[in-house]
Design a protein around this nucleic acid. Sequence first.
DNA 1: ATGTAGTAGTTAAACGTTTAAGTTAGGGTG
DNA 2: CACCCTAACTTAAACGTTTAACTACTACAT
Lengths: 342, 342
Amino acid sequence: MTTIKDVARRAGVSIATVSYVLNGTGAVSEPTRQKVLRAVEQLGYRPSVIAQGLQARASRMIGYSWQPMPPDQFNPILEKFLHGMAEAAARHGYHVLAFPSTSPSDEVAPYREMVETGRVDGFVLSNTNLDDPRIQYLLDADFPFVAFGRSNAGLDFPWVDVDGVDGVEQAVRHLVELGHRRIACLAWPEDSLTGQYRLQGYCRAMADAGLGVEPEWIVRTGNFYQEAHRDARPWFALSLDRRPTAVVALTDLMAMGVMNAVVDAGLAVGGDVAVIGFDDSPVAGYLQPPLTSLRQPLAEVGELVVTMLIDLVRGQALARSQVLLRPRLIVRDSTLRSRLGS
Amino acid sequence: MTTIKDVARRAGVSIATVSYVLNGTGAVSEPTRQKVLRAVEQLGYRPSVIAQGLQARASRMIGYSWQPMPPDQFNPILEKFLHGMAEAAARHGYHVLAFPSTSPSDEVAPYREMVETGRVDGFVLSNTNLDDPRIQYLLDADFPFVAFGRSNAGLDFPWVDVDGVDGVEQAVRHLVELGHRRIACLAWPEDSLTGQYRLQGYCRAMADAGLGVEPEWIVRTGNFYQEAHRDARPWFALSLDRRPTAVVALTDLMAMGVMNAVVDAGLAVGGDVAVIGFDDSPVAGYLQPPLTSLRQPLAEVGELVVTMLIDLVRGQALARSQVLLRPRLIVRDSTLRSRLGS
DNA sequence: ATGTAGTAGTTAAACGTTTAAGTTAGGGTG
DNA sequence: CACCCTAACTTAAACGTTTAACTACTACAT
């Protein structure tokens, strides 16, 4: 491993001069500058980030943790989000440290460890919720972080989120335009903030369209295929005048459960019952029929979150510290080919 | 931030003593040991990993990079593999640094940068292939790494892989047992080593079963849904005596293309044509019909790869430096309910 | 009494950077 | 010619650890 000393010796200058040349600080004459650069080139010298880190009391690392999915479920955001983050971080000389969230009993422990040992300069949080202990801890510790997702209205912290209200509104409006009147929503348990927003979008859009909502059209269930499949079934056993002709599910995985429940009832997805998902996971386009879904700008969120965090770490004020992005409705056959319009 | 000096001052000893206590090296009397530990406790002291890293000339970081998928495809391994790695790494005091693979023009550049700046102590490679420039570089640089996947037979380096030959053999045997005789294989281009192994499994199992293989039953296509969908179609336009009654696809995504091609031809998946995928991605079980597929022990591979790498980094000899794991065939309706047996 | 060995601790150097402070030479000014 | 200023360096300290080398003390054998 070649160090700054080797370069200094080779160029016939002191190590300080080498450092000044490399960082562009300090007054160095052009000839010496060239000498140093040549030595750097010849030796293939690169400064040790660890030594720089010790000196600057910074690691140039961004911590990110996610909770693993159960084996039969996919994480709809990880790949694109992580890639967006890693790219943006690298552009600024930072890197992403991926650490596992261990026991849910003490969610904060791994974060605390990273902070106290100086492993990372800041965190990106995802999957935030109300009363998120991680947010509380990081605010208390005054440690930089940016969240993908919101939390309690009272807490002031930087976040980026995708507007679930707007997204589901888009979905419902699309269905209304296609002629649907009886639209159901497969929602999440009440404690999910993201679920609250998305459900709110449903309620608002239905009201805006002047449509009534039967109580049995809103079903809350877990974020799993099996539960969605099971809990969507009763809809299609309802009498013809109460049976929904369209369903908005809060997740593609849940939408798949709905689609299969439709098939189980001897009905056709897209034909008898329109279905819309959320996330636009890569499989959505390849299902039978292809699933209409709301696409989150995940790479953009990843980039934004990281650039905000780096500004924060560098002590710069954020231009916008709370950003709400719109999802985009990707229309596919699960809502077209509807028999209602024709 | 509290340092070892603070602890030393509080405990009334030298910093060396604190270090000795914390590392369990050196001779320290029990009373002083207690004093030090109490001070550590009271101050909430944790050693700075960066300072330790500088001293030890090691970062306790493992680098991992993956190529991003096109937007409409999913990465079937990332989440579970990464989680397996991160868990295993954390257990040994290491962490995973996720960096983006940038331009394919110089695949090695980001690796070289990590090596030269001392960012990581070793790498995990995935998606290796023949003549992989990353392997060549790391071998030349004598830098520790372990690969998920094999490469040229002549290169001696540590790897873990899932046995594609065995996997596809399992698949074909399963189909043969169900009574299938005309079995096709949707394979990858010739330059993919993984594809070679899997195709070899097909050929070997067909030969073992005493079954002939029509040339048009082996189709090579890209690892995409669209191409698979397009290139599987001709099979189902073949005359009844040459048309395959079962297809093994090298990927779940490709299998989905095949399934939809079957439906397009007015046939039923599972009924008229059995389909098997590879990867057992989370969606496989929720497709219509649920897809039989080969499950790779991804978390196990991740753990194994990391523990091997850490041994390597610590200069220990590896018990086994080349490990081949068996995939497991998960049987679902896409191969059951076949009309052949009954 | 003297040397020896072991125990328990301290001192100081080292890891590879950055940077404040100091030094030197040269040129301009009165 | 003495003075000051500036440009272009160098010296050395600091960041927070680990660890080799040293010191001081006690206990014990000779």
